[in-house]
Amino acid sequence: MNCTDFLAKLTDYFDGQMDPDLLADVKAHLGTCHHCEVVVDTTRKTIEVYRGSRMYECPEELAERMRAAVMKRCFETGRLPDIEIKAKKPAAR
């Protein structure tokens, strides 16, 4: 296996979708090729750092606001009868 062959299998390697013979070839290549070893290590770290990041959190307040807006729009279609009942209660006071 050369570096190009290895690269073609990189996604399957990360996803653990390799038959044992191919996996043995990949591991043998990694044992002898420092460049590919670095690519594997740093690509794995790339995935980990994005997966572990909290760059795009959705605060509860925002989630509640969006949810309320959606439910209001759904109610306005008139297809959610029990929302209609709940919504009419305040008006009846």
Partner: peptide, 24 residues
């Protein structure tokens, strides 16, 4: 069938995932 609580549960389960996906 018109059960708003059921739909709200579905929203709660996935609103953050959808928000993050759209933001990305």
């Amino acid at each position: 069938a018109g059960d708003s609580a059921a739909f709200e549960v579905l929203i709660k389960q996935y609103e953050r995932q959808i928000f993050r996906t759209a933001l990305h």
